[in-house]
Design a protein around this nucleic acid. Structure first.
Lengths: 153, 153
DNA sequence: TATAGAATTGACGTAAACGTAAGGGTGCAC
DNA sequence: GTGCACCCTTACGTTTACGTCAATTCTATA
């Protein structure tokens, strides 16, 4: 089985291996392409989120793995836990209509959206509170000849 | 040394102990008043953020402790770590102008404000991304007789 | 005095998503 | 044949702010 050699990997986009259209990449390439570390890819595999082929002990990532990784990263970006992502992906059935999967995803998304909005509200609150405090501190600093209130006692 | 007894604690707001105007409360009262757990108060003490008096082995919280706790909780609310809070409070000097303390607080606050704003931007981004995905999923669900795109492969 | 309620210290457990060695193998360019 | 660049597994470490026992003691009250 011939593989993309490390050096020419980037250039060798049209390399065809076993099956037609299957570009197999090793972990280093994969990591570089998606901006993650090797550890992360192995971790995702360990958690059952990825399932690369093997050439001996070397991992070979296929088109499918890339699609899955993209989904994982999207999920992480919008704040899903890896557990959630896995739960949703595990429902995928290539033969069915995937209605279940879509419903679960939608359900989880609604909850996550609510969490995000709540978080945003908390942050806005914190920003206001912090801004107020800062104004007070600036005031105290500008009047440091006058008696100070203390911020710790 | 007479103390506020557990039962009448809430009513006994005017109890004066050793020093004039010093209302000493035990850890249970303190926790209830500020909506934290006993563990939290002991933890803060362990971290050097609080320093209650003792009656034997029993902790007695003074006015000062209350002020400090309020600050800790405010700090937590706006997203400071306990380390940061401690660092700021440790600079307090009852005899000086506390300019240093105020400057540090301001400096940390500016950085924290920046972090909060960045976080808010990330959340807004996530909300958008998530909303888009949800729209797509809803679309797929409404057309589930048509061929589906998959969200996992 | 018996029992319940409140307090103490000590110390391990928790969550999430990896980071960071340690120790070892494979292939290829020189 | 050696020096890199890559790859592998195993497994402990990190971070933060507490939660959760466990075993014991102190105090007030019926």
């Amino acid at each position: 089985m011939k593989l993309v050699s490390p050096g020419e990997a980037a250039a060798n986009t049209n390399d065809m291996s076993d099956k037609a259209g299957e570009e197999l990449v090793r972990i280093g390439e994969m990591a570089k392409n998606y901006g993650v570390t090797l550890r992360t890819l192995r971790f995702y595999e360990d958690k059952g989120l990825l399932n690369p082929q093997r050439d001996g002990s070397t991992r070979l990532y296929t088109r499918r793995d890339k699609a899955r990784l993209k989904l994982i990263l999207l999920g992480r970006k919008v704040g899903f836990s890896l557990r959630d992502v896995k739960q949703m992906m595990d429902l995928y059935d290539p033969t069915g209509s995937n209605t279940k999967q879509l419903r679960l995803a939608l359900d989880k998304s609604e909850k996550q959206l609510a969490r995000l909005q709540k978080q945003r509200a908390l942050i806005d609150d914190a920003i206001k509170e912090l801004s107020n405090s800062m104004a007070a501190v600036r005031q105290m600093l500008s009047e440091r000849s006058a008696p100070q209130a203390s911020i710790a006692g």
